[in-house]
Design a protein around this nucleic acid. Sequence first.
DNA 1: AAAAATCACTTGCATTTTGCAAGTGATAAT
DNA 2: ATTATCACTTGCAAAATGCAAGTGATTTTT
Lengths: 149, 149
Amino acid sequence: MKNGKNKLRSHCPVNYGLEAFGDRWALLILRDIVFRGKRTYGEFLKSEEGFATNILASRIDHLIAAGILQREGHETDGRKDTFSLTEKGLDLIPLIFEMVLWSAKYDSRSEAKRIIRLVELIKKDNRKISQKVMEQVKRGEGIVAEYLS
Amino acid sequence: MKNGKNKLRSHCPVNYGLEAFGDRWALLILRDIVFRGKRTYGEFLKSEEGFATNILASRIDHLIAAGILQREGHETDGRKDTFSLTEKGLDLIPLIFEMVLWSAKYDSRSEAKRIIRLVELIKKDNRKISQKVMEQVKRGEGIVAEYLS
DNA sequence: AAAAATCACTTGCATTTTGCAAGTGATAAT
DNA sequence: ATTATCACTTGCAAAATGCAAGTGATTTTT
């Protein structure tokens, strides 16, 4: 991974996206925030895909440098920081949802089966449901129960 | 990169997408096909981001194993193969378009400025324009002139 | 028909990135 | 005061990447 200070290889929109968030681990952090309402380093670390501690730290730094994530001190525990999506990060939700749609269609064992209601809503109007979810995530809720199963 | 035979780390829809096409180079191949109408190894190699020859070969293999790309013999030149998107690959176009939208919004130097018309159409109705572009790409046209500038 | 060029790779090797285990220093809980 | 928890960093082996230099199959040029 390159850090935010290196110049981009190109300003092609696809390449820009890739360099900003298109890293395997970086996108999983965003998923954890959006779908699981996670907010701290320790919570990210518990993800089933298995972050290495150094990689997680470096990806968080990268996302912050890219203006996608922001860090604040934890309200009650001085050891922790709280991470949340900036406006720029929230705007990635429609893209993540398209990814969910695609995987739901092509992965026969997709866990998207547990969020059929949400998948239907994305299919119907991604922009609309994304807007709604962006508000929820902004309030720190993650994907709420109403979309599950 | 892991090859198609390794099992997935998870069937989370986001992770599935990442393992299938969510590699820096893999997505650039798709971009080259969709936006530039490229079809051969040599054409991909010329991309401004600079593929290494071995990486390009391995990513093509990966995309084929993932069922996103397909290989056919070139019509007139026996040294070449022609690569094209499968149905599964074409279905990634809406996702790529969301990426373009996001980059257009946040990269002040985005080359998306040269496809303002297309960006507007995506904003208005991604599904609709994607459908149209899918047909064009299927015919081997890449993004056509009407969307440029 | 022979020689040269093109094309799609593969190979070898140095550099970079990853993944794991084991710290470390700060805060919190007991 | 002592121990645990948390968010990292460090060190190092293993894997992936990037580059240069092949290689073998066509195709083009002479």
